[in-house]
Simulated scan of single mutants.
Amino acid sequence: MYRALLYKEWIKSRWYLAAALVVLLAFSTYAMVRLYRALAMMGAGHIWEVMVMRHAVFVEQMEYLPLLAGLLLAVVQFAPEMHRKCLKLTLHLPLSALRTTGMMLSFGVAALALLFGASFAVIVASASPVLARELVAQIVGMLLPWYAAGWAAYLFAAWVILEPTWRRRLVNILMSVLLLRIFFLAPVPCAYAGFLPFLTGVALLASLLVWLSVVRFTAGKQD
């Protein structure tokens, strides 16, 4: 049963995941091409100075990509379930609603982990040979909150989509926007170094909120 449920999620999202992977890898590669071009034109010493003194990280164009990837994955996964009235059938499988929802969310979280991991690997593998370890860590410190925002956006979007009433859905959207804003308050590398556990907690909170929407849906709440 678990395998069939995961296969259903894969069938729904496979083309989107392929497209998202291509886009993330393209932007990651472009960022590293910019870095290598700058190194060739200005020299390693100047680039290192710019990264230290001006906090340049050469991956700024990726800031909202993980968030967008998570948001769209939730739409691909859950919007058809709500539009076609299929969610009630899915929740009536011989599994508890909590396990069914948990499997669907786990698939999305794992898929995003693969997408973000591939992007992260391209950037770190490309930057490590030409930058000092501390400068690579500076890039990583900039990327991690953005990846965390992608997971949080996925879970918040699922919370909004699975909510059965529009009045509550609008409240959920407002709360989601305010909470996601936390991930983008500090434009300085490693500014979130001691704050990442809190951001992780925000993402975990989002997964619990999804369950509240499912409970309301199974209870028959509607406009």
Rank of each mutant, 00 (worst) to 15 (best):
L95Y: 06
A110V: 12
S106Y: 00
F116M: 04
V136N: 09
W146H: 10
L89I: 09
V124Y: 05
I161H: 11
L105H: 01
A137D: 15
I139M: 03
F116L: 03
V160C: 15
A132M: 14
I123N: 01
W159S: 10
L91K: 02
L135Q: 09
L91W: 12
F120Y: 10
Q138N: 06
L114S: 09
P145R: 09
A127I: 01
T101K: 09
A111N: 05
T90Y: 14
W151H: 10
W146N: 03
V160T: 05
A148C: 08
A118L: 10
L131T: 05
I123M: 00
A158L: 09
M142P: 00
T101H: 14
A110I: 14
W146G: 01
S106G: 13
A157H: 04
M103L: 14
V136F: 04
A127Y: 08
S106I: 02
S106R: 08
S96L: 07
V160F: 08
L93R: 14
V136E: 07
A127V: 01
W146E: 02
G141Y: 09
L143G: 11
F116C: 03
L93A: 13
I139A: 01
P129F: 06
S106F: 02
L114V: 12
V122P: 12
G141C: 13
G150A: 00
S128V: 15
Y154Q: 07
M142K: 11
R99Y: 14
L143A: 09
A132W: 11
F156K: 00
L112N: 02
L155C: 15
A111Q: 05
Y154R: 06
L112C: 03
L112M: 05
T100V: 13
M142H: 08
V122T: 09
A157I: 00
A110E: 05
M103A: 14
L112P: 01
S119M: 11
I123D: 00
A110Q: 10
A97Q: 07
G117W: 03
L143C: 12
F107N: 04
E134C: 02
I139Y: 00
A152L: 05
S106D: 01
A121C: 08
W146A: 04
W159Q: 08
